[in-house]
């Protein structure tokens, strides 16, 4: 509690230190099933937060509520201090009040998906240029230049004129990360980025993500990669049955699991 107060005081004193992402009391049901039972989370600039949890624990849903791919039933989401405005629809459900605001915020929160979701009818280069030119309205030449640089960085510049279906999963995911980087996002959301990959391709994607963490990018990573959570992230959050079970520094969390659930969870991974 005192840490929260301190954080709040700090946020008040220096406005540019306000939370990059702040989620309060997020709830979400799918039918009768309550997936998120009041989740809160705060990510500051430069944080790399690994979100762990067994399947069905709500971790992907939480991530998707942040950029409104799912609409939370209640609770608030702030990005860079800006509250995403919600309103009640006629059937009593919550919905975004201002879709333009949502679009503007989404453009700052690039997402990397489990199944890549590259646009299959565009080449890799076109994939990287589409959103910056059409959403951020940046000049095409400048976007192309940046796209080529990003592709070099993730090591698939040679594949720039390939179509996504012609590349391996690891290459597609690296292209998807480059596509996210091309937006110059404030926060990057990773939704199980290595779960759809063959085991031998996981490393190349994790290497890229590690290098992003090292350059101080703010990242929320839903993952099953314990190594990444332990070694790369600055904070680990463990969700259990739609609630935050435990949060902490990775070295504390893994050395002394704070709850039996988390202990059980990592024990299953080490089998």
């Amino acid at each position: 509690m005192s840490a929260n107060v301190a954080a709040a005081a700090q946020a008040a004193s220096s406005p540019d230190d306000k939370a990059a992402i702040s989620v309060k009391n997020l709830r979400k049901c799918f039918g009768d099933h309550e997936v998120l039972k009041g989740i809160s989370l705060e990510a500051h600039k430069g944080d790399v937060i690994s979100i762990l949890g067994s399947s069905g624990s709500g971790k992907s849903t939480m991530l998707r509520c942040i950029n409104l791919l799912e609409t939370p039933d209640s609770g608030e989401v702030r990005v860079d201090g800006e509250l995403i405005k919600m309103k009640q629809s006629r059937d009593g459900r919550q919905m975004p009040a201002d879709i333009r605001q949502v679009e503007r915020i989404r453009a700052n929160l690039a997402m990397v998906f489990q199944s890549f979701n590259l646009w299959s009818h565009m080449t890799v280069l076109e994939n990287l240029v589409a959103a910056p030119t059409h959403v951020l309205k940046r000049p095409r030449a400048e976007c192309l230049e940046q796209a080529e640089a990003l592709l070099k960085r993730v090591g698939i510049w040679e594949r720039r004129n390939y179509y996504p279906p012609h590349m391996s999963g690891g290459q597609q995911q690296r292209a998807a990360i480059a596509r996210a980087l091309a937006m110059n996002p404030k926060v990057m959301l990773f939704d199980e980025p290595t779960s759809a990959l063959d085991p031998e391709l996981v490393g190349e994607v994790l290497r890229v993500m590690r290098s992003l963490a090292e350059e101080g990018r703010t990242m929320l990573v839903v993952t099953h990669e314990m190594g990444f959570a332990r070694d790369v992230s600055s904070k680990v959050m463990f969700l259990h049955k739609g609630e935050v079970d435990s949060v902490g520094e990775p070295k504390d969390m893994f050395a002394r699991p704070p709850t039996p659930q988390f202990k059980q969870f990592i024990a299953n991974f080490n089998k």
Binding site: R100, I105, N117
Partner: peptide, 22 residues
């Protein structure tokens, strides 16, 4: 594919841009 439309949403494309480009 729903995923490709979702990606367009997640990158901040408006409904019209999404429809036209994806």
């Amino acid at each position: 594919p729903v995923g490709q439309i979702e990606a367009a949403k997640a990158f901040g494309m408006s409904a019209f841009t999404r429809f036209r480009l994806v």
